[in-house]
Structures are given as C-alpha cells and as structure tokens.
Amino acid sequence: MQIIVPIKQVPDVALNIKVKDGEIVQEGISWVISSWDETALEAALQLTEEAGGEVTVLSIGTAKVQEALRKALALGAHQALHIQCDSSAGWDSYQVAKVLAKTLADQDYNLIITGKQAQDSDAGLTPTMLAEFLGLPQVTNITAFKDVSDASITLHRKGDDGIEISKMTLPGVVTVNDSLAEPRLASMRGIMMAKKKPMETVDIHSLGLAPEVLQSGGLMTEVVQYEKPDERKEGRRFEGDETETVPEVMQNLKKNIGLFA
C-alpha cells in the first residue's frame, strides 16, 4: 500500500500566540507538525506496518518545512517530498489543494491521509477540495480502519448521529479524527535513520501551475486580520464546604440567569 500524507507545519498552539496590529507575531513561535497530521502519519505507519508498503510525507512551504518532514521521517515515514516556495503566507485552502492536486496528479498511491483540519487555520477544507480536484472519493473524520487491502478499505467515520461505516474502493482521500491513534514518539534510532532517508525538493514553479495560484494573501479567500477573542474574565470563587458553596452558586444562577425561574 502506497500512502501519501500531506503535512502542514504550524505554530504550536499550546504556546502563547500574540497578535500585533492585526497580524500574528512571528517572534517566539515554535513550529511543529499540525497535531492531526501527526495522527494521520501514525495511521499511515500502522497501515503499512500491517499491510506493507510505504508512506510518503509531503509538505508545501519554504525551506523551513524540511524540519517537519525530517521529523516525519524520524517517526517512520519512508520518504519525503518538499514542494518549495518563497512564501506560502496567507495562502488559502483552495490554493494548497490546487498545488497538492497538481503534485499528485501523476503519482501512484492507494490512499491520501490528512488531519481533519490544520491546527492553525482550523479550516478543514484542503483535503476535501483536493479529493474533488483529483476526482477521488473521500471520507472525513475517521476513527478506525478495517479490512485493509490495496484495492479497498473499510472506514469508520464519526458522523453526527453515530459511527458511519463504509467501504471505499481505492485510491481515495481520508481525514482522521485524533481518537484514531496516539502518535508515537521519535526514537534515537529513528532520528539517525531519518538523515539517510530520501527527501526530494521540487521547485513549485516547475509544476506548471497558473501563476495566480501562487498569489500571496489568498486566491479565493483572505484573512483581513487576526484578533484576540474577548477574554473571559474569571468570575467569583467559592471555597469551603460544598453544602454551602453549591447552594450559593445555584441561588446566583437563579437570580442572574433565571435558572428554572
């Protein structure tokens, strides 16, 4: 089974993210693989460990994304493809999907696995747009794989009313829910081996895309500015015996929000 995992390098959202004049402050950001993409990679590794085959990780970005690709190789991916561009700042999901579709148009693969959304944009648009551009079936928000073969796969998707089960004839695109697998940690040996694994760099201008696809600031949609959400202020604290604090809080709820009033 040949699996492609497109990964996005994103700011670590567990750390503080600052905004100044409507823009994200770049200084102090720590760049990581988007956590759902780590789950996607983990799923791909498990599938190839079970059914054989190889995992190719792919990322579009400046030379910096090679760090993310190298980390993915250390985790067990077999090879990496870096689509190099001068800047992908402000690109929208449509553009990324167009570049991915062009890159993958004449590649051989059974499955494309991505995170359900990227941890920075929280958009969740790219994989499905990619599926449409490649004319492939898609199933999003996968929680489990069953009956894996090169020709087909059974997928469990977390839908609105329960788990939807379907069988996909491959090739196809799937996105993962993070409950699917716990990403492994890189081992010392993995990190050493990653240095010898193949990483190919392709200049984005050599793909033959229409020039406007590479326009900065978004082709179809643009982020005008970033804002901090209205900070919730901490309210009142109630400490002491629960038989006293709880009734006091419930009385407040009755008075202030009309609970069961």
Partner: peptide
C-alpha cells in the same frame, strides 16, 4: 482559529 486562541476576520 489556532484552537480558538485567535479570531480571524475573513473575506
């Protein structure tokens, strides 16, 4: 976006 740490104004 960013795990709800920020709000994007988009068009």
């Amino acid at each position: 976006c960013m795990a709800t740490k920020l709000i994007q104004q988009v068009r």
